[in-house]
Design a binder for these strands. Structure first.
Lengths: 226, 226
DNA sequence: CTATTTTTAGAGTATATACTCTAAAAAGTC
DNA sequence: GACTTTTTAGAGTATATACTCTAAAAATAG
């Protein structure tokens, strides 16, 4: 593997683990057993590394949001979309940690991210439309489909942040459990449930149940105290 | 006003405007025309300033989520809750910009925030329950109410971040429009719509319409290109 | 008016960060 | 095997950051 690609991989790993803010270019170089000078031979600056990582992320997510054209769409498709998306978000979780800062530091990234978001929202709308086409979702107005897409996006992109914020331990090594990440699928399914045709609901509920996880926020005893 | 309170106010202002990461204690002092030494006389460190700001935020949000006990709850109540919450989020928007970093730097804050979240989720559930009680929401199971509360929370707490991320300009001075912030209310109302009793829906739709704003993401022409 | 406490200024420090520069080593080419 | 190009090391730099320390000014109390 090329050194350049290794830098990208290592950076992603460190950014996810410790947060982009806490990882300097010197850290990355040191972690790879290489000199800072070498790192800067491959990348002009830290932003360029981040940009490259984002491009990979973009590529991955774009590949997820394709509606099958050769056959009708099924509830299982919806679930595998969600599963894939949440895994992707996990693999690139540092991006959503302080997105605003990343965007304000790199004009290209800001612009690309903007269109990336719009593309995702359109992708979600196409999925909804396809589900309507195969009698899973009840038909809805354009405006409604738009809102659904946006709400879904908000839920999905905020799920990791939420999990990390209520995680009791401040040890970044203690990863969130796979189960708790998957509960995001449960939530999105709960969101779409009312729009399903009645005859599909039983199946959806059954599939949903596999993604449920109650152990996210233990001992809320103190919740009432300030 | 006490110097200490002025520091808190100025910090909040600067954090919101430029992002907490880009505002040093020296900046805060300079912006107030005072010496760093003076600032550190009032606060032991930056974290303590943030903690104080958070405590104000907490107080504010907690005050929002009270269900009226002297009368039945109405759709208008729901809307004024949402309106207030979004305004509150705007006023303290830096908190959600890189919450994870704030939490990982301050154990007290991490713990407090955790219980704050749980309290909010319970508050939302109580509101839902009250709405069921006054024949606005259709009755639902505990588990469902829990999911609704969590999804609402995810939508609400991510709305500012979303807006800022698709905002074209990188000029932090160019504030987001009031209208676009309010569209968050529209979205949450769209989310709850299916759970309303049919006879309440017309009114809800009418009220919702006032919060709609389409100018969030203009010219998505390029969205298909990568 | 004196004594004490609170508040302030301002210079200073240790550390980290993003990044540069030069020169040597390694790899590739003919 | 001479050469050219690519890759690397490593020392160094300018700047910023969070925070400390000392002493003077201002406010308060008796």
């Amino acid at each position: 593997m090329k050194t350049k690609d290794k830098i990208v991989l290592t950076s992603l790993e460190l950014f996810n683990e410790k947060g982009e803010r806490n990882v300097s270019t010197n850290h990355i170089a040191a972690h790879m057993g290489m000199s800072p000078g070498n790192l800067y031979y491959h990348f002009r600056n830290k932003s360029d590394i981040i940009y490259e990582i984002f491009k990979n992320y973009e590529l991955m997510v774009d590949s997820y949001l394709n509606v099958p054209t050769d056959r009708a769409i099924h509830i299982h498709d919806l679930i595998s979309y969600l599963d894939a998306v949440f895994n992707g978000l996990w693999a690139y979780r540092f991006i959503h940690q302080d997105l605003e800062h990343l965007l304000s530091n790199d004009k290209r990234l800001r612009e690309d991210y903007r269109y990336f978001t719009l593309r995702c929202l359109e992708g979600i709308q196409r999925i909804i439309l396809a589900m309507e086409g195969s009698q899973i979702y009840r038909p809805m107005e354009d405006q409604q489909r738009k809102s659904k897409a946006l709400n879904t996006w908000l839920i999905v992109t905020n799920w990791m942040t939420y999990l990390k914020s209520i995680h009791a331990s401040d040890d970044p090594e203690e990863a969130l459990s796979r189960k708790s990440i998957q509960h995001g699928v449960y939530l999105v399914l709960d969101y779409v449930m009312p729009y399903l045709f009645e005859d599909k609901r039983a199946l959806a509920l059954e599939l949903q149940e596999k993604y449920r996880f109650d152990g996210i926020a233990p001992n809320p005893d103190r919740a009432k105290a300030s």
